[in-house]
C-alpha cells in the first residue's frame, strides 16, 4: 500500500528540526535572531575596542543586556514556577493563583522599578533591582504558561499513554515534560523584552541601574535632559533595534511552538 509520506529528502526530519524550521520561516523571527546575534558580537567588539560615541553606546548595551538577561531569566523562572505550581495544585488553587496574575498584567507594573530605585536610594545594589524586575516580568509569563500547560494536559496522546498503562511519573517524564519545553520557552521569552523595557524606563528616569553603571536607558535619559540629539541617537537606535528583535523572535516562537494556537 502507500509508502511513507513524503519520500523527499526531508522525510526523516524530526519534530525539533521542524519546529526550528517553523520558527525561521517567520520572517521577523529570522531577522530578529540575526539582529540579536549581530548585536552580541557588536557589543563584545565595542567593549574591546571602546572609544567614540559608537563605542560608548555599545558599551552601555553590555550593561543593559546583561541586566535584562539575568532579570528576564529570573522573571521567566518565577513565572513558570508560578504557572506549574498553580496547575499542579488543582483547580481551586489554580484559580486563586492565576486571578491575581491576570489582574497584575493589566497594571503599569513597570513603574514599580523606578519606585524601588527611588526608595532604595542612590546606593542601591544591582541584585535587588534585578529581583524587582523579575517580579515585574513574572505575571505575564505565568498567565501564558498556565494556558499552555492546560492545553498540553488536554492533548489526546496523554490519554493514549494512560491506555497503554504508562505510570504517572513516567508519563510526566517521557511525554509531558518534553512536549512542554517549546511552548514554555515561548512563554518564558516574553520576560526578556519586558525586563529590558522596565530597566530602560527606570534608568531613563534616573531611577534604574545604580550610579556608575551606564545602560542604554541611562545614556538616553542623560542625552534627553541635556538636549543632545547626537548623543541620544546611538543608544536609542540600539535599544529600539534590540526590542524589535526580541519581540520578533518572541512572536515567531509563539506562532511556531504554541499549542494554544498562538493567538491570545
Amino acid at each position: 500500500m502507500h509508502g511513507p509520506a513524503g519520500t523527499d529528502s526531508h522525510w526523516r526530519d524530526g519534530p525539533w528540526q521542524k519546529a526550528g524550521q517553523r520558527l525561521t520561516a517567520h520572517r521577523p523571527a529570522a531577522a530578529g535572531l540575526t539582529v540579536l546575534a549581530a548585536l552580541m558580537l557588536a557589543v563584545a567588539a565595542g567593549l574591546v575596542a571602546g572609544g567614540g560615541p559608537v563605542g560608548a553606546a555599545l558599551a552601555a548595551g553590555h550593561q543593559s543586556l546583561t541586566f535584562a538577561l539575568f532579570a528576564g531569566l529570573g522573571g521567566a523562572a518565577l513565572g513558570l514556577l508560578w504557572a506549574a505550581t498553580a496547575v499542579a495544585l488543582g483547580e481551586r488553587a489554580e484559580r486563586a493563583m492565576m486571578t491575581p496574575a491576570t489582574a497584575l498584567t493589566g497594571l503599569p507594573l513597570a513603574l514599580a522599578l523606578p519606585l524601588a530605585g527611588g526608595l532604595l536610594g542612590p546606593e542601591r545594589g544591582l541584585a535587588p533591582m534585578a529581583v524587582v524586575t523579575a517580579l515585574i516580568a513574572a505575571p505575564a509569563v505565568a498567565v501564558v504558561a498556565r494556558d499552555e500547560l492546560r492545553a498540553l494536559l488536554r492533548r489526546e496522546f496523554l490519554s493514549a499513554a494512560q491506555a497503554a498503562g504508562i505510570a504517572n511519573g513516567r508519563r510526566l517524564r517521557r511525554h509531558i515534560l518534553p512536549n512542554a519545553v517549546l511552548p514554555l520557552a515561548a512563554a518564558a521569552w516574553t520576560a526578556l523584552p519586558r525586563a529590558l523595557m522596565a530597566e530602560s524606563l527606570a534608568s531613563l528616569l534616573g531611577l534604574g541601574l545604580p550610579e556608575g553603571v551606564t545602560g542604554w536607558g541611562t545614556a538616553i535619559g542623560a542625552a534627553a535632559r541635556a538636549g543632545d540629539a547626537v548623543a541620544l541617537a546611538g543608544p536609542a537606535l540600539l535599544l529600539a533595534l534590540t526590542l524589535w528583535a526580541l519581540h520578533g523572535v518572541g512572536d515567531g516562537m509563539r506562532l511556531a511552538f504554541s499549542t494554544t494556537g498562538g493567538h491570545r
Binding site: P15, W16, R155, E156, F157, S159, A160, A161, A163, A164, G165, R174, H175, P178, N179
Partner: peptide, 24 residues
C-alpha cells in the same frame, strides 16, 4: 491487575494523529 486488564482492553481514538506523541 489493572495493567493486566489494560493489556486486554485497547482503544482507537477519533484523531489517531493527535493520539501519538509528536516528539517520539
Amino acid at each position: 491487575a489493572m495493567r493486566r486488564a489494560r493489556r486486554d482492553l485497547q482503544i482507537l481514538f477519533p484523531d489517531p494523529l493527535a493520539a501519538l506523541d509528536p516528539l517520539m
